[in-house]
Computed example of a mutant assay.
Amino acid sequence: MTEKIGKFDPKAFAAAMKNLSLSAQAQPGLLLDVSYDNNGDLDRENHMTKVVDGKQVVTDILPPANKK
């Protein structure tokens, strides 16, 4: 996002994150699709995990809170 703003500006960065959605397919380096609400708060899919035989195992995937 800093590249799009053109400078490191925390206030401009926060404003640019409001109502923003980013796709992992379209944005190299993202692991998951993410969205930010009108307050700039992150809203994305979450994973419930547990450790089995020393390895992390996904037990459930929770949808984004604001997904309709």
Rank of each mutant, 00 (worst) to 15 (best):
E45F: 02
D37I: 03
L42W: 05
V57T: 10
I5Q: 06
K67E: 15
T2Q: 11
V34M: 10
E45L: 07
P64N: 08
V34G: 01
L22Y: 02
L20V: 07
I5C: 07
K18P: 01
D33T: 02
E45I: 05
A14M: 09
V34H: 01
R44T: 08
Q56L: 11
N19V: 02
Q27E: 15
V51K: 10
V51G: 00
D41C: 05
P28F: 05
P10K: 11
M1D: 10
K4L: 12
P28G: 10
L31I: 08
V57R: 03
D37W: 03
K67I: 13
Q25K: 15
L30R: 06
P64S: 11
V34D: 00
M48H: 06
K55E: 12
E45G: 00
P10V: 11
E45H: 01
P64A: 14
L31V: 10
I61E: 10
T49L: 01
Q56E: 14
F13A: 07
D43G: 00
K11S: 12
Q56G: 00
M1C: 06
A65P: 02
D60N: 14
D37A: 05
T59K: 05
F8S: 13
G54M: 07
D37N: 15
N66T: 15
N66V: 06
P63N: 08
N38K: 15
L22I: 08
K18M: 03
N19F: 02
A14R: 09
H47S: 02
N38F: 04
K55H: 13
Y36S: 02
L32H: 07
G40E: 03
E3R: 12
Y36W: 14
A16V: 01
P64F: 04
G29H: 05
L30F: 09
L30N: 05
K7Y: 10
V58A: 04
V58L: 03
P63I: 04
L62I: 15
P63F: 06
D33R: 01
N38G: 14
Y36M: 09
D43N: 12
A65C: 03
F13W: 10
R44D: 00
L62D: 09
P10I: 09
K67T: 14
N39P: 00
Q27G: 00
D43E: 04
L20I: 03
I5M: 07
D60H: 13
S35K: 05
M1A: 13
S35R: 06
S21V: 08
K50L: 04
K11N: 12
N66A: 14
G29S: 06
F8Q: 13
T2A: 12
A16D: 06
D41A: 11
S21E: 10
L31C: 02
T49I: 08
L62V: 15
D53R: 08
T2S: 09
G54F: 07
K68I: 06
E45T: 12
N39L: 12
Y36V: 01
V34Y: 01
S23N: 12
N38T: 07
M1S: 11
M48A: 11
V58N: 07
K7M: 11
N39K: 15
D41N: 13
A12Y: 01
Q25S: 15
M17N: 00
T59Y: 03
D9H: 10
K18F: 02
